[in-house]
Simulated scan of single mutants.
Amino acid sequence: MTSYPTISRDAYQALCRHARSQPDAIAYTSRFRIATYRKLRNRIERAAARLHGEWGVRPGDLVAYVGCGHPDALVLYFGLVCCGARLLPLEDASLQFDSARILAELGVRLALIDDDGVAPEGVASYTLSTLIGSVTTHPALQVSPDPCVPSLARMAAPSDAVPLLQESSLADETGLATMQQCEVRGALFDAAMFPQVLATLAGGGVIGFLG
């Protein structure tokens, strides 16, 4: 089975190729904005530079996303892939309710929240808009991801309601497929949804954020 960091790297490389060959093609749409492939690539590079240069994220670090289905969470994810770090998505309301304890127990370095979200206690937190909202003086960063280290850490709530960290691959044995469009209506990092998002970016298609 192809490792998930490799799939993520391949999707990012495909995204960069689309940014060069079809820079004005639409990568995603939402209620608030439309982003071309060139703009998405630029935002990811800016995010990686800020995560590493200003916020001190290093390879192997765990960064949380506390929100649900925001387009900039996709920028955050690929920014972390470029840094060699991992994302812990807390998109389920039950996990967000207990986020302070979860983040403390797992040693999360920092958390990014939706702009209208509530920052969890006990960890440095920033809104997603600050990730790309201003120019950073730090150079763009790209670290080759370690195929042995999952880039996406998932939380599951077992029957006793105690969250359990599960790191798993979302890639199948066929590798990185391609799609022309997909629609995100809820959680972006859902196990059924996120592979479609990667496949759409690989195919140079359009992602619609409908939340």
Rank of each mutant, 00 (worst) to 15 (best):
L176P: 09
L51R: 02
L165T: 07
G175S: 07
G133R: 04
T6Q: 07
S134L: 10
L74C: 05
R9M: 08
A14N: 10
C68Q: 15
R101I: 05
A161D: 15
S21M: 10
C82G: 10
D115F: 01
L210W: 12
I132E: 14
G186D: 06
A153N: 09
C182Y: 02
W55Y: 13
R33Q: 15
G133V: 04
G186P: 04
V57F: 03
A153Y: 01
T137W: 11
D92M: 04
R58A: 14
A192V: 06
F32C: 15
V135E: 15
G122H: 05
S3W: 00
C16P: 06
D72Y: 03
C83T: 04
R50N: 12
L103T: 07
E183R: 03
R43A: 09
S3M: 02
L90I: 03
S3Q: 07
S159T: 14
A19I: 04
H138K: 14
P59K: 07
C83I: 05
D172C: 00
H70S: 10
G56N: 13
N42Y: 10
C16G: 10
P150W: 01
G205S: 08
T174S: 10
R9N: 12
Y126N: 09
R38P: 11
G205Y: 02
L170F: 01
C182I: 00
P139W: 06
L112W: 03
A191P: 05
I113D: 10
Y4D: 04
L76V: 06
P23R: 06
K39I: 13
A157N: 15
L15H: 08
V75R: 02
F194N: 07
C82N: 13
Q180C: 10
A187F: 01
T36D: 09
E173H: 02
Q13S: 12
A73Q: 02
E105A: 11
A157L: 15
S144G: 12
E121V: 09
P139N: 09
G204V: 06
M193T: 00
G205V: 00
Q166E: 13
A27I: 01
A85G: 04
P150K: 02
A64M: 04
R31Y: 13
T127K: 12
C68D: 15
F189G: 00
Q13V: 08
L188S: 04
T178Y: 01
V108T: 11
R46E: 15
G186Y: 01
T127Y: 06
L131Y: 05
Q181A: 10
I102W: 04
C82R: 10
T130M: 11
S129C: 14
Q22R: 13
D61C: 04
G56P: 12
R9T: 10
S129E: 14
V143R: 08
V162R: 14
D190T: 00
Q181I: 03
G84M: 00
S99P: 06
A119G: 14
W55G: 15
T130S: 09
L90M: 03
R154S: 08
Y37H: 10
Q180M: 04
D98P: 07
L51F: 02
T130Q: 13
M179C: 12
L15F: 09
I207N: 00
T136M: 13
R33H: 15
S151T: 07
A161Q: 12
A73G: 07
G122T: 03
C148I: 14
L62I: 07
